[in-house]
Simulated scan of single mutants.
Amino acid sequence: MTEVVSPAHIAESLTELWSPRVVAELDDSYVKVAKVQGTLAWHSHEHEDELFYILKGSLTIEMEDRTVVLHEGDTFVVPKGVRHNPVAEQECHIMLIERKSTLHTGNEVTAQTRSLAEQLRAV
């Protein structure tokens, strides 16, 4: 992927909630965008950190020992192994940077879990 992309415009165009799409890759990581609202699922990524960047709106990330609230322009890294649950009261657009080995909802499988093939679909 060597084209100029606008993560904000791509996130805006998405029609599915909690369905990340890969918009770029660098080394062993993917850059993904998603449109989210409601609750995803409690999960963790045993071997990978997960970077959240808020393109639009706000996102709460619940963790077992604390909760953080992110607003447009904010970034937060959930460290590997930390159980977390992303929640958006209103529609929120996010950008994620994750290692290519990162499973969408870790070892938890829900109706919202998306495979890597689904995340690699054209936008």
Rank of each mutant, 00 (worst) to 15 (best):
V87M: 05
T39Y: 08
V33F: 07
L116Y: 09
A24P: 01
D74P: 02
E48R: 09
A41Q: 07
E25H: 10
F52V: 03
T39Q: 15
P86Q: 05
I54R: 01
D27N: 15
S13T: 10
A122D: 09
L51K: 10
V77T: 15
L26A: 12
R21S: 09
V69G: 02
V78P: 00
E25P: 02
L17C: 08
L14D: 04
V5S: 03
G81K: 08
M63E: 09
H84Q: 15
M95L: 15
P79Q: 15
E72Q: 14
R21W: 07
R99A: 13
G73S: 07
W42Q: 11
Q112N: 14
V22E: 06
I97V: 12
E46L: 09
Q37G: 11
I10D: 11
H93S: 02
I61N: 12
G81I: 05
L55D: 04
E50A: 05
H84I: 12
A111E: 15
R83S: 13
V31T: 07
E50C: 01
D49N: 14
A122Y: 05
A34S: 14
G57N: 00
P79K: 15
S29E: 13
E64G: 02
T2S: 11
V22P: 02
Q37H: 12
K32A: 06
E108G: 01
V22S: 03
R66P: 06
T105M: 12
G73V: 08
T60G: 04
D27P: 00
S115F: 08
T102Q: 05
L103K: 15
T2G: 12
D65M: 06
H43D: 08
V109D: 00
E46W: 02
P20V: 01
E50L: 06
G57P: 06
K100T: 11
I97Y: 01
V78Q: 04
L120Q: 08
A122I: 06
H93D: 01
T75A: 14
L70G: 11
R114W: 00
T67H: 11
A88H: 03
T113M: 05
T39D: 14
R99V: 02
E3G: 01
E108V: 15
K56H: 14
S101E: 07
H104V: 10
S58V: 04
I10P: 07
A24G: 13
A111M: 10
A41V: 13
W42F: 04
V87Q: 02
L96M: 11
P7Y: 05
L17E: 12
S19L: 00
